[in-house]
Amino acid sequence: MAANNAVGIDKEQVFGMAETEMEYRVELFNRLAKTCFSKCVDKRYKENELNMGENSCIDRCVSKYWQVNSMIGQLLSAGGRPPTM
């Protein structure tokens, strides 16, 4: 009974961590998309296609965002401080 429970809790933790990890990736994607849209897409919406300039801006923006994400990830883990508050 006790063992059963312990297993139950462990399994909850595994599912909880998987969920947290997925939420993290989704949030990373959403913030990246929002930020690069603001930086790269002309808000006058004169057409419904992304033009060439916007497209290459988006590619570079994603690449740079990814770099910033890595840099700050390293800073947070280097500080002996895992990304906690």
């Binding site: 296609e49 992304l50 497209n55």
Partner: peptide, 13 residues
């Protein structure tokens, strides 16, 4: 535009 943008970002991501 937003949807096309999301798809492009999704591919790069």
């Amino acid at each position: 535009k937003f949807l096309k943008h999301s798809m492009r970002v999704g591919m790069r991501f």
